[in-house]
Nucleic acid binder design. Sequence first.
RNA 1: GGCCCCAUCGUCUAGCCUGGCCUAGGACACCGGAUUUUCAGUCCGAUAACGGGGGUUCAAAUCCCCCUGGGGUCACCA
Length: 522
Amino acid sequence: MKPIRTRFAPSPTGYMHIGGMRTALFNWLFAKHHGGVFVLRIDDTDRARNMDQALRPILQSFRWLGLDWDEGPGVEGDFGPYFQSQRDELYSHACEELLKQGKAFRDFTLPEQSKAERESAEKEKRNYLNNRNDQHLSEEDIQSRISNGDKYVIRFLVPRDTDEKIVIDDAVRGRVEFDPTQMPDPVIMRGDGTPLYNFACVIDDAKMQISHVIRAEEHLSNTPIQAMLYDALGYERPVFAHIPYVAAPGGKEKLSKRKLDKYRKSPQFKKLFDAADFVFPLINLENTGELDPVMVEYYEKIGYLPAGLLNALSRLGWSLDDQTEIMSLDTIAKNFSLERVIKSAAGFDPDKLLSFQAHWMGELSAEQKQAGCIPYLKQAGLINDEQEQSNQLEQIIAAIGERFVLFSDILKFNEFFVADEELEFDPKAFKKRIVKPEQAKSLLDALAEHLQNSQAESTEDFDQVVHDFVEKQEIQIGQIIHALRVAVTGKGAGVGMFDAMAILGTESCIKRIRIAIAHNLE
RNA sequence: GGCCCCAUCGUCUAGCCUGGCCUAGGACACCGGAUUUUCAGUCCGAUAACGGGGGUUCAAAUCCCCCUGGGGUCACCA
C-alpha cells in the first residue's frame, strides 16, 4: 500500500479562511489517522510582493490550532520546494512534454476574442468550446508568429474524439462522470511561462506523491480537467475526496468573505460581530476592523480555545457516531474516516461553536484560565504587571465560574478592576433598580451605614451582614439586592452578589454605594 | 443558461450502501418547570424532521424513476 500523503495548498491571501481551515483539518486528520504525512504547500503562482506578510497569518493559524505540517514552509522534506513560485522548471518541463506529444498546443487567439466567443455561446444558451484554429499551425508559422511578438497561451487538448466519459471515483461522492466532448481546452500556461492552477496543482500533487486529494466541493468541476492531465502526463491519479463546503449560518450558500456585509445583518452571525465590536477596541488591536468571523484569526484573538474551534469544525460534515459530540483532537484523529463525511453542505453554527467552547473552557484549570485572560486585562489597561499574580484575580475567575466561556469574557467584568470613582453605571439597570424604586436610595444609604459597622470579609460574611440588614429593616432581600448590585458593580447582572462584595471589600462597597446615591442619570 | 452536486427536526447530525429492530436517535438553539438574590449554570420536561409524486416490495427515510427546491462551477484566479 502506498504511503498516505495529504496536502493543503493555501494561497497567501493575508488571512486564513475558516472554511479552508476545516478542509485543512480534514486533510490533517486523514493523514494522522493513517500515520501518514500532511504537506503544506504554498500556492503563490500569483507572485504577490508581500508574500511573507500574506503567509504569516496563515501559518500562525495552523500553529495556534496545533495542526503541524510534516513538510512545507520551514520543514524541509524530500519533495520540496514547497512554494509553487520556486517550481517553475517542473511546470515548463511538463508543458513541453505535452507540446511535444501533441497533447497541448499554442493558441494565439486574443483574450478578447475568447471572451467574445464565450459570451456569445452563453447568450445562445450553448455550451462553450474554444476554437482550435491554431491547433495545426506549422512549426514555421509558430516561430514566425512568436518572433513577430504575437502573444499566445498553451492549452491542453481535451481528448474529444471519444465517447468515453471521464469517471471520477470520489471517496465521498462516489462515481461522478463528465463528458469530455463538452469541455473547452483549458489554458495550462500563460504566454509568460507561468502555470495556471489546474496545471500546477496536478504537477505538484503528482510530484509530491499526494495519495489523497481532499478538498472542498467547489473543486469538483476542476477534477475532470486534472484527471485528464494526470492521464496525459502519465501520472497515477490520486484518490479524490470532495468534502462539502462550509456554508454561512442559516443557509446553504458558501461562506464567503465577500458577503460580510450581509452576515453582519444575519441574526445567527450577530453575536460574533457584537463580540468583536466589544472586545477588539478595548484591547487596542491595530487591525481591529479587519478581523471578522470568516477568519480563523478572529477566534484566536477573541479568546477561543483551539479545542473548541477544532471540535466544532470537525463536526461540520463529519460525525463519529450517533451520540458523540465532545471530542478532543486526538479522539477525532483516532476515529476520522472519509466514509463518515457527508455530502451536503454544512452551515456553520456559532451557537454550537460556543457550546463546544464552553465545554473545553470548563476543562481548564484555574491557572490556565487565569493565564489566558491576563493578556486581555493587560492590553485593556485593567491590570499592571504586579497585579498579574494577585489572588484576587483567582477569586474573580472563580466567582465568574461558568460564565467564563471566552478568555475575553473577563473584560465584561471590568467592575472588579476599575477604581471606585471610575465605575460606570449601566443606565438602564440604574434607572430600573435605583431611580425607579422609591426606597432604593434610602435603603442603600442605610445599608452603607450597616456595612460600616461590620467587619465582613468573606462571601459568607457579606451574606450574613446583608441578611441581618434585611431582617432589621423588615424587608425582603429582593428589595435591596438589585439596587445593591447596580450600585456596587454598575450592572444588572453578574457574579454572585456576595462574591462580588467579598472581592471588592467593605470599603469599596460603601464607597460605591455612596457614589451611586449621589449619581444622577444624564 | 451549460455542466456537476446535494436534499432527515430551526441548525449540526445518526439511520440509507446491507429495506423490517424507526412509534426516526443524539447534540445545539428555542420554550416550560425546578434551584438561585440576579444572570449564567445545573437538573427535569416539552415542541420539532424523512421536500412532492410515481414505482419495486408482504414491508421504503432506506432501492429505482420523475418533479421540485437548494447549491457549486463555468477565467490567460486559486
